[in-house]
Amino acid sequence: MFSHIFVSVKDFDRALKFYSEVMLVLGNEARFCEPEKPWAGWHSEGRSRPYFVICKPYDGHPHNPGNGQMVAFQAKDRNTVEAAYEAALRTGGTSEGAPGLRPQYHPNYYGAYFRDPEGNKVCVASHCEP
């Protein structure tokens, strides 16, 4: 469905450290990193697309996180959701909802919500039974 998703940042080095840790836990591979541009991207293991990219805004204007926007990453299991959440908080993220079941979405939805250091909302979710 998706080719790629871009999320803008103002402090590229801080965002790179944050997303590198979260992507490592999720098993996503680095696709490219060009700090001089600056931008970096990751994709699912063994795949080329879709990919997720962080970058400074193309138009040169300041970054502003979008209200009501969120990027959600799939985790292979509940332990991975918890590990990604811990990595996010350890590298400067803030909690928007601790790991747990969210049965209002479906009986096996296990998710965690956080904001990256730039204020962008992120979710990590598993849809598998325990």
Rank of each mutant, 00 (worst) to 15 (best):
H4V: 04
H4A: 08
H4F: 07
H4W: 08
I5T: 11
I5V: 09
I5D: 01
F6G: 01
F6R: 03
V7K: 03
V7H: 13
V7L: 14
V7F: 13
S8Y: 11
S8M: 11
S8R: 13
V9G: 09
K10R: 04
K10P: 00
K10E: 15
D11C: 03
D11A: 05
D11R: 14
D11F: 00
D13P: 00
D13K: 15
R14K: 15
R14C: 03
R14P: 02
R14E: 01
R14A: 06
R14V: 10
R14G: 05
A15M: 14
A15T: 10
A15S: 13
A15H: 14
A15V: 12
L16A: 01
K17P: 01
K17C: 04
F18T: 03
F18S: 01
F18C: 09
Y19A: 02
Y19C: 05
Y19I: 09
S20C: 06
E21W: 00
E21H: 11
E21D: 13
E21A: 15
V22E: 03
M23L: 12
L24R: 15
L24Y: 00
V25Y: 06
V25Q: 05
L26Y: 12
G27Y: 14
G27P: 10
G27C: 11
G27V: 15
N28M: 15
N28Y: 15
N28S: 08
N28C: 11
E29H: 09
E29L: 11
E29R: 07
E29C: 10
A30Y: 00
A30G: 02
A30C: 06
A30D: 03
R31V: 14
R31F: 13
R31E: 06
R31A: 07
R31I: 14
F32W: 09
F32Q: 05
F32T: 05
F32D: 01
F32M: 06
F32V: 06
C33S: 02
C33I: 13
E34G: 00
P35M: 08
P35C: 11
P35T: 07
P35Q: 08
E36P: 03
E36Q: 13
E36K: 09
E36M: 10
E36V: 08
K37H: 13
K37I: 13
K37Q: 12
P38G: 13
P38C: 07
W39Q: 05
W39V: 02
A40N: 02
A40C: 14
A40T: 00
G41F: 01
G41P: 04
G41T: 09
W42N: 03
W42S: 09
W42F: 06
H43Y: 06
